[in-house]
């Protein structure tokens, strides 16, 4: 039996190899305790399927997205230009990431600064693997027949028109996908975008994540699926706020697929 491998670009370059795809982990995927589990689940899937991938490891830095949304263009561009130098240095062509904010920034905003890559979100990557029959889903796992609702991330949905890939991934698990009243183009934000993740909300009647969680709970779903580290945090906090953490779980798509694969 062999163990899971997590090669870095530096190691691969040292051996004169180059992977098919760079897995951009992102800051939440690297440091946030809850989201590290998602990173690990995704890496396990990549190993199991035999995808040729590598990560930047310690050479990765924040894409700069929250700095740019908070108005600090200098800081954003400092981060972006440094990242682009690293990625171009490794001659990277294709990037996959589990963070819609990283996805949006690298895909749409790095080209203006000299970083041109094919960028896909892990929901799209997983959908491709499932469609190609590369992911052997058992379909009888813990999710079978259960009600699951999907929370659209703004930076995946409205920002980049990715609505179907995450839903296809969920449906592949043989579950009952139930939609919230506000979904797809009308999806309600979790409250964390635009650098809100890094400050307290402005004064108001209610927190946005509570409003969204109430809507998710109203579907009667036993799990809320997300495809974004910030949404994961916000929805998890929302479920706790409503004291429903015992019966309603919040999962990332990669975790659900990995669970079903038994890894």
């Amino acid at each position: 039996m062999s163990t899971y491998k997590v090669p870095t670009m530096a190691e691969m370059a040292g051996k004169g190899e180059s992977p098919e795809v760079l897995f951009w982990v992102g800051c939440a995927g690297s440091f946030d305790d809850r989201y590290k589990a998602v990173t690990q689940a995704f890496v396990k899937i990549l190993n199991k399927v035999g995808v040729s991938f590598a990560v930047l490891g310690p050479e990765e830095a924040c894409t700069g997205d929250p700095a740019r949304r908070a108005g600090n263009e200098f800081l954003f561009q400092m981060q972006a230009v440094a990242n682009i130098q690293v990625m171009n240095g490794y001659n990277i062509k294709k990037v996959v990431t589990a963070c819609p904010h990283c996805f949006n920034t690298i895909k749409n905003e790095y080209p203006a600064l000299g970083g041109n890559y094919e960028v896909i979100h892990h929901s799209q990557f997983l959908q491709q693997l499932i469609n190609e029959g590369k992911v052997a889903l058992k379909g009888g796992g813990e999710f079978k027949g259960k009600k699951i609702t999907f929370h659209d991330s703004c930076y995946l949905g409205r920002a980049n028109n990715v609505y179907e890939a995450p839903r296809e991934v969920i449906k592949a698990l043989d579950v009952e996908l139930v939609e919230m009243k506000r979904c797809k183009t009308k999806g309600l934000c979790c409250g964390a975008g635009g650098a809100q993740m890094f400050k307290e909300p402005e004064p108001g009647r209610k927190d946005i994540n509570v409003e969204r969680t109430e809507e998710a709970l109203a579907t009667g779903a036993s799990a809320i699926a997300v495809g974004c580290p910030f949404c994961l945090t916000m929805m998890t906090d929302g479920v706790k706020n409503k004291e429903r953490e015992a019966d309603v779980k919040v999962y990332d798509l990669a975790e659900m697929i990995a669970k079903d694969m038994g890894i």
Partner: peptide, 29 residues
């Protein structure tokens, strides 16, 4: 972000620590 290259205060050296655990796990058949 300026000092740790992440929006949170973590050491950049720890960025790749998440991989330690998964590298030790065996791939089931």
């Amino acid at each position: 972000m300026e000092t740790s290259f992440a929006p949170w205060k973590f050491s950049p050296q720890d960025r790749f620590n998440w991989a330690e655990k998964v590298k030790e796990e065996e791939i089931p058949d």
